[in-house]
């Protein structure tokens, strides 16, 4: 099934085809699950309007197709989805795709920042802890990891806001940029970065502790392997051993975890974005649930499924690049 494509492309194609039934299943399941929740878009809209008469409500339902049996609604939705039409958001009065694209950037920025912080700091601290195993440094790092691991992100968020915004006044409380700041160029970048510091820290610390603990364990394991002894016998110094021999091998399981956790970070961003009022997908998701904005919600889930599939694919490609023993198949 290679169609004469270069190996990585053929592999990508195959993975994509494998992902299609998974995504369809996710969409159907979510659709049905959402229909189980009481109330729909019309209830929410009417609630906002402060009430309406029964005939009007019925007309609205008919207009949105909500009077049809669930199976018909599902079929219509999936048929449209097949053409990548995500439908119309009755809450935002815009196509869902436009609503999503508006929000995607913020979420990706938050996730990228959080994951890279968690990953780099996690592996660095883990490696240090392992090299100084059972010392004071190790105990300190490991205890810190445990604290991060045990602290929920919403609690951290509130703590940060209290400390750095309310008490010290160093950082903005929420949002992605200063309202009516009208910064441009570099100032804009700095402004956004300042707004992202606390959400990123709150979201990343728990993942940081995962990577740290895993890295510590694998470095300890790899350091005991025969080829490290071989390198020592060749006259390699400790730094060289760490970088070329130990880290290179110890990183592999951590990369796997990185791919697996991407989706949970996406989930975690719902909480953090809501607290810091960041206009991202997470915040949109929680608002859409409250407003019963079915189409937007489905759109978010569709987008997230695709992101997760793509990230998992990239992780596998990265893994194959890093581990010479693995061939993509």
């Amino acid at each position: 099934m290679s169609f004469g494509l270069p190996p990585v492309l053929a592999y990508a194609l195959r993975r994509l085809l494998q992902a299609v039934p998974v995504i369809i299943l996710i969409m159907v399941a979510t659709f049905l699950l959402l229909k189980l929740a009481p109330g729909d878009t019309v209830d929410a809209l009417v609630g906002d309007m402060g009430g309406a008469d029964a005939a009007y409500i019925a007309r609205m339902r008919a207009e949105y197709g909500l009077d049809q049996p669930v199976w018909v609604q599902l079929w219509r939705y999936m048929a449209k989805l097949a053409t990548f039409d995500l439908g119309w958001s009755f809450v935002y009065e815009q196509p869902v795709s436009v609503v999503l694209m508006d929000r995607l950037g913020t979420t990706l920025m938050l996730m990228a920042a959080s994951l890279s912080l968690a990953f780099t700091l996690g592996i660095a601290l883990g490696a240090i802890a392992a090299r100084k195993a059972y010392s004071l440094t190790d105990n300190l790092i490991s205890t810190l990891g445990l604290v991060f691991y045990a602290t929920p992100s919403f609690f951290l968020s509130l703590l940060f806001i209290y400390l750095f915004s309310v008490k010290l006044g160093w950082l903005p409380v929420g949002g992605i940029k200063t309202i009516a700041g009208f910064y441009t160029g570099w100032d804009h970048v700095v402004d956004v970065a300042l707004h992202l510091i606390m959400p990123t820290a709150a979201l990343s610390l728990i993942y940081l502790s995962f990577y740290m603990r895993l890295m510590r364990a694998t470095v300890l394991e790899v350091a005991d392997l025969d080829f490290v002894r071989t390198a020592r016998a060749k006259g390699a110094g400790e730094f060289r051993l760490m970088i070329h021999h130990i880290m290179r091998n110890a990183l592999l399981p951590v990369i796997t975890l990185l791919g697996l956790q991407f989706s949970t970070v996406l989930g975690g961003s719902v909480v953090v974005e809501t607290i810091f009022t960041l206009p991202g997908l997470g915040q949109l998701a929680s608002q859409s649930v409250v407003q019963r904005d079915m189409n937007t919600l489905m759109g978010i889930i569709f987008l997230c499924s695709i992101i997760v599939v793509v990230v998992n694919f990239l992780t596998d490609v990265l893994y194959a690049r890093l581990d010479s023993r693995i061939e993509l198949a």
Binding site: L225, D226, F227, R229, T230, A231, A233, H244, H245, R248, N249, L322, D323, S324, R325
Partner: peptide, 11 residues
């Protein structure tokens, strides 16, 4: 060393 598989860095 004894075990030539494990005595060489696999990566």
């Amino acid at each position: 060393f004894q075990e030539p598989m494990t005595a060489l860095n696999p990566q």
